[in-house]
Amino acid sequence: MTTRIVELRQGILKKNDELAAVLRERYMHAGVLVLNLVSSPGTGKTAFLELTLRRLIERGAKAAALVGDLETDNDARRLAASGAPVRQINTHGICHLDAEMIGRHIDGWAGVELDGLDYLFIENVGNLVCPSSYDLGEKIRVALLSVTEGEDKPLKYPTLFNSADAAAITKIDIAEPCGFDRELALHNINEIRPGIRIFETSAKTGAGLDAWLDYLGQQRLAVKS
């Protein structure tokens, strides 16, 4: 018997990364800004996205959303109330979205072409661990944190916050009764991801939405040019 070492130096998620690279190319070619929204369950991703879609459409932009959940199409139905095309992805037990699921749902999406969109939002499965490993070809990964969750979430889940390009604090309308320490939360996010853009928002009052929408507009211009 002879023993031999075969060098591989290969990414474990190579297949996902390759599919994500193809998607990224397609998004760029279509001139659509793609965002991946990640957070724990209950942070308010859907409410935040619903208001975002509504406001973008009011501004005349063409926005659509893919939304991932283990089961039910409840979120897709909620988001569709904004007037945007929305497609539900049910993962049936899988704790994250991957590039293959995204590609498949974009391709079979009746009436929606990437070319016709300005923005595509992907609302990931509520989970602060697994989605951080899977590239969906997005331009911007947004980590959300609600005031009810505790200011140390970024320290507990550093991978997700470190891999984010922007962060949104949600439900700031109830920050005070929750005893939310704003300074500490901002400090913790910055410790994990120095210099990240942070938006303090409320889907209920609309607070912080203008700054968020302006940021989206700038990012979208960068994709288009």
Partner: peptide, 23 residues
């Protein structure tokens, strides 16, 4: 100073495999 530029630490890779071959 804060340092956002990550150069290493997200690796998720297969480095090598060790195989035993019949002579």
């Amino acid at each position: 100073e804060p340092a956002a530029d990550l150069r290493q630490g997200r690796e998720l890779e297969i480095e090598s495999i060790e195989i035993e071959e019949p002579d």
